[in-house]
C-alpha cells in the first residue's frame, strides 16, 4: 500500500513508501533465487510496457518483473506504435485505457509525458524514464543495492559523478537519497552541471579527488555519447582522467566504498575495466535488484483495493 497510485517522480513517494518498496523487494529477491521464479500474485492483470525511446535493459527488467508475478506483459516500442503514424500521447492513453490494462510503464523522450499519460487514464503509471527528468525505479533499485551492500542508508555519503545536467538517473537519485537521510554530492565539471546547481538539493564539487575520501558510494553516471550536441569537455580521455574511476583512485578511497553505474557502461571512460570487474563494483547487483524492486512497485501499486480488516 503506497500513498500514491502512480510512481512518476520519486517525490511522489514518502520516506515510508520508499522503505515499504525496499522491504517488499527483499521478499521478491528471495523468489528470484528460487528454481521456479514465478508467483501467481498478479494473475489476470495486464501490464503494458510503452517504451517510446530505445531501451533494452530497463524494458527487459520490467518485462521479467511482470512475468514473474504472472501478469500479462505486453511490450509496445516506439517504432511499432502508432506514435510514428502521428497519434498523440493522449490518444494513445485513451486507446490503452479502452483495452482495460491495469498498469502502464512508460519511457518517453520528453519530460512530463508519464504525468500526461497518468492524467488521462485510469491505469496506474510507472515512469520508466522521461527525458532528462526522472527515472524513479532506477533510484529505488540503487537504494536497495546500497542498503544490501552497506547495511543501511541513513548518513551515507553518495558521490554522483558525471553528466548531472542531462541525467534523469541523478534527477531521481538525489531526492531519493535525501528522503532516506543520505547525503548526495554531485561531482562534475561546471559544463556538465545545470545552470543552477544549487537547486539540485545536493552539495556540489568540481573535483572527484577532493571528495573521494568522504564517499561511501561513488555513483558513476554514463557519458551519453549518442547525444547529438557534442560533448561539453575537450576529450573522453581528459574526462576519464579527472572524473573516471580507476584503480589508482580506488586506492585512495575508503576500503568499503562501492562503485555503482546505471549502465550501459563505457569502459575506460566512467569506470576503468579493472575496477568494473573488481568486487568493489556492484553494477550487476544493481541489475539483479532491478527485477525485485520493479516487482515490488507493481505488487504494491496493483494489489489491494481498500485496506479491509485482516482475517
Amino acid at each position: 500500500m503506497l500513498s500514491t497510485p502512480n510512481i512518476i517522480d520519486i517525490q511522489d513517494l514518502t520516506e515510508s513508501d520508499i522503505i515499504t518498496i525496499l522491504d517488499t523487494a527483499e521478499s521478491f529477491k528471495e523468489v528470484n533465487e528460487r528454481r521456479i521464479k514465478k508467483l501467481p500474485t498478479l494473475r489476470g492483470r495486464t501490464i503494458i510496457n510503452l517504451f517510446l525511446e530505445p531501451s533494452t535493459r530497463t524494458r527487459t527488467s520490467f518485462e521479467i518483473a511482470a512475468k514473474r508475478l504472472s501478469a500479462d506483459a505486453v511490450n509496445m516500442t516506439g517504432s511499432a506504435s502508432a506514435t510514428v503514424k502521428g497519434e498523440s500521447l493522449r490518444d494513445t492513453a485513451q486507446t490503452l485505457s479502452a483495452m482495460a490494462c491495469d498498469l502502464i510503464v512508460v519511457r518517453h523522450k520528453y519530460a512530463g509525458a508519464p504525468r500526461v499519460l497518468a492524467e488521462c487514464m485510469d491505469a496506474h503509471v510507472i515512469n520508466g524514464g522521461d527525458g532528462r527528468h526522472q527515472h524513479p525505479t532506477q533510484a529505488l533499485l540503487d537504494l536497495f543495492t546500497i542498503r544490501q551492500e552497506l547495511g543501511h542508508l541513513e548518513g551515507l555519503t553518495v558521490g554522483i559523478v558525471g553528466d548531472i545536467a542531462n541525467s534523469r538517473v541523478a534527477g531521481s537519485l538525489i531526492p531519493a537519497l535525501r528522503a532516506v537521510g543520505a547525503r548526495p554530492i554531485v561531482i562534475a565539471p561546471p559544463t556538465l552541471l545545470p545552470a543552477r546547481p544549487d537547486v539540485l538539493g545536493a552539495e556540489v564539487s568540481y573535483s572527484l579527488d577532493d571528495v573521494l575520501p568522504d564517499l561511501d558510494v561513488a555513483y558513476m553516471l554514463r557519458i551519453q555519447m549518442e547525444r547529438s550536441e557534442g560533448m561539453p569537455f575537450p576529450s573522453l580521455r581528459e574526462y576519464a582522467r579527472f572524473y573516471g574511476m580507476n584503480a589508482a583512485r580506488l586506492a585512495k578511497a575508503r576500503p568499503e566504498m562501492k562503485v555503482m553505474h546505471p549502465g550501459p557502461m563505457n569502459r575506460g571512460v566512467e569506470v576503468s575495466s579493472d575496477v568494473a570487474d573488481s568486487p568493489r563494483a556492484i553494477v550487476l547487483d544493481q541489475v539483479n535488484s532491478g527485477v525485485a524492486v520493479r516487482m515490488a512497485t507493481m505488487y504494491l501499486l496493483l494489489g489491494g483495493g481498500d485496506s479491509g480488516t485482516a482475517s
Partner: peptide, 22 residues
C-alpha cells in the same frame, strides 16, 4: 513461509507487512 504473494485476495487487500520466506 510468507504466503502474501499467493493469497487469492490480493486484489482486495495487501498484507501490510511482507516477510521473507525461508
Amino acid at each position: 513461509l510468507d504466503i502474501s504473494f499467493y493469497r487469492d485476495d490480493t486484489a482486495i487487500r495487501l498484507n501490510p507487512e511482507v516477510h521473507r520466506t525461508d
